[in-house]
């Protein structure tokens, strides 16, 4: 049982406060949606938790450990996994080798074991043709590879940053099933950034709504969707 918790998490870039006093938590077995209009600070929040940025103030707790000042590669080893909104496959490596990196470094396995584990993981995701270059695989396979790369670090908490973007409706449904199944099997805490509300309603137990870096609403999606502040954040203008 793990829990990720942010405490007054804040980051400013010059005069812009991209994440503003954010308090939220995810526990094992929960899938939490992170939604909000463009520029609300969703990806910044993930980057802060993953250690790509260090906060201006506030803390990030993984269970009883404050991880807000430790470097990204160590957070990966501690159990923070993530995918990327803009997909960057490691082009110099094959699909299998891409998946192996997490086993090799975050889990500190040897080459042989990492190769076996990566094969096994890809099999559960029904990802085949593992010796291909990353430029030769289609969009659904790329998304599966991204999820596999995140899972290869053996995360306790996993963030999926628009992992469904670019998929057609059939593929999206498949991806939703995969994420649900993995989260349940591994008892993961999952944070999902997504623009398609259909995905949020099918996948998440609750959501937080960000606007200009602040949480303006939280709770089950059906409740939040009725919230006047949320509506105005999406539609613009004052209430």
């Amino acid at each position: 049982m793990s829990e990720l918790r942010t405490e007054n998490l804040t980051i400013s870039f010059g005069g812009l406060t991209a994440t503003d006093n954010v308090n939220f938590n995810i526990k094992s077995g929960e899938i939490v949606g992170i939604i909000g209009p463009n520029g609300a600070g969703k990806t910044t929040l993930i980057n802060l938790i993953a250690g790509i940025y260090y906060p201006t103030s506030g803390k990030i707790w993984l269970d009883d450990k404050d991880i807000s000042q430790i470097p990204a590669h160590e957070r990966s080893a501690l159990g923070i996994g993530r995918t990327f909104q803009l997909i960057h496959p490691l082009e110099g490596l094959t699909v299998l080798q891409n998946v192996m990196t997490g086993f090799l470094f975050a889990q500190k396995m040897g080459l042989k074991q990492a190769r076996e584990e990566a094969r096994k993981l890809c099999r559960t995701l029904e990802l085949t043709g593992l010796d291909r270059a990353t430029g030769e695989i289609n969009i659904l396979e790329t998304k599966k590879m991204e999820i596999a790369k995140a899972l290869a670090t053996n995360p306790k908490v996993m963030f999926l940053d628009e992992v469904m973007a670019g998929l057609n409706s059939t593929e999206t449904l498949e991806a939703i099933d995969i994420v649900k199944q993995i989260a349940a099997e591994r008892n993961l805490a999952v944070g999902v950034v997504e623009h398609v509300m259909g995905v949020i309603t099918k996948l998440t137990h609750s959501v937080i709504v960000l606007d200009t870096g602040r949480i303006i609403a939280a709770g089950p999606y059906e409740d939040v969707a009725q919230n006047e502040r949320v509506k105005s954040a999406y539609l613009g203008g004052g209430v």
Binding site: I52, F84, P89, L90, G92, T101, K108, T153
Partner: peptide
């Protein structure tokens, strides 16, 4: 290929 991806894989 990508330093941020590398870090996120624990490198």
């Amino acid at each position: 290929d990508n330093e941020i991806v590398a870090k996120s894989s624990g490198i």
